[in-house]
């Protein structure tokens, strides 16, 4: 691991529970994650694996019944979990910002794009017209034609793809150190997805921010990200450079996930491959490895003992970690 100061975001041993009627649901358990400066880190995993909980913990906008039971979330050297609400507010939208999943519902429907983009600059001491100019410039950068006049329009007057471009423009307007992208292309069609990804890549290199990119789409992760984190049922099972993880996945779950990617299927088939079984109940966790019930390589040890995190490649500059008993041999 690189030094802590080189990381924009550094999460250590983060665990989050949700209080539910059936007892506490352990949504995140002992998560360690680093986002180095200027890098794009992808997070993949099925629905319900804790991706959204992870995000809500980073921006500290958690559900009322969520409770952080352990860990630290260091952002630019300060722990977000113990930070004052005022300090947190000053970071949001300035040093870190977020693009949400569904572009059609993330913008306020009764306020113009211009008002929303100017409002989020409320901390700046510039004049209103300067702020508008800045927003128009940003819209031009994300490929909105005639941006100055489109600032007067309302979200419903834009297409879904346009709305997502606007969301990205809003997020990057303040030149944050970290952009969190929560499945920004899931609601869009494939052609638009490529455009948005290319645009994100371009903007990232010009602004120099780090991106935490959440997606179901393995192809997009491979295309965009430097590092990838594979999550399963609230735990990180494998993480490392995209090239390594996707070329030689070590965890059985990552292997299965890659097999299920439609892009990797060479033979013509009527049935798409799936991973057998279901995600374990997070309020009643198994004693051993979390993936045991669906694992095709399980041994007796897996049922009883929790696996530890292991470095796959010793001594390499960019490390590849996996949490599996098979790799500890």
């Amino acid at each position: 691991m690189s030094k802590a100061t080189d990381n924009v975001l550094s999460i250590r041993n983060l665990s989050i529970d949700y209080a539910t009627q059936e007892g506490s649901l352990k949504a995140l358990r002992n998560v360690d994650l680093d986002i180095p400066k200027g890098q794009i880190v992808g997070v993949v995993g099925e629905s319900g694996c804790g991706k959204s909980t992870l995000i809500s913990s980073i921006i500290q906008l958690m559900a009322n019944n969520a409770k952080t039971t352990s860990g630290t979330v260091f952002f630019e050297g300060e722990d977000l979990l113990t930070m004052s609400p005022t300090k947190l507010k000053s970071l949001r939208g300035q040093r870190m910002s977020i693009v949400f999943q569904d572009p059609m519902s993330t913008l306020n429907p009764v306020l113009t794009i211009g008002k929303q983009m100017v409002d989020i600059q409320y901390r700046d001491k510039r004049s209103k017209s300067q702020k508008r100019q800045r927003s128009a410039d940003m819209l031009a950068q994300v490929g909105i034609p005639d941006p100055a006049s489109r600032l007067n329009q309302y979200p419903h007057e834009f297409s879904g793809g346009m709305q997502q471009r606007i969301s990205i423009a809003m997020a990057l307007q303040a030149q944050p150190a970290l952009l969190i992208a929560d499945e920004p292309t899931t609601a869009l069609d494939a052609t638009l997805e490529v455009q948005i990804i290319d645009m994100l890549k371009e903007l990232q290199s010009s602004i120099g921010c780090s991106i935490l990119f959440i997606s179901h789409h393995l192809g997009v992760i491979a295309e965009l990200c430097n590092q990838v984190v594979v999550m399963y049922a609230g735990e990180i099972v494998e993480q490392g450079p995209v090239s390594r993880v996707f070329k030689s996945p070590k965890h059985p779950y990552t292997q299965k996930l890659l097999e299920c990617d439609p892009a990797s299927i060479a033979k013509k088939t009527r049935n798409l491959p799936t991973i057998e079984g279901e995600i374990p109940n997070l309020s009643d966790l198994p004693a051993g490895c979390i993936f045991t019930s669906r694992c095709h390589k399980k041994t007796a040890q897996c049922e009883e003992l929790k696996p530890k995190r292991h470095a796959v490649t010793q001594g390499a500059t960019e490390k590849h970690f996996v949490t599996c008993h098979l790799e500890s041999l």
Binding site: L61, R92, L107, Y122
Partner: peptide
């Protein structure tokens, strides 16, 4: 509870706004 309010909060807008 709508998403755009979450967005406004994620940008740290003052609660009154």
């Amino acid at each position: 509870g709508e998403n755009h309010i979450r967005t406004a909060r994620a940008y740290g807008l003052p609660e009154n706004t």
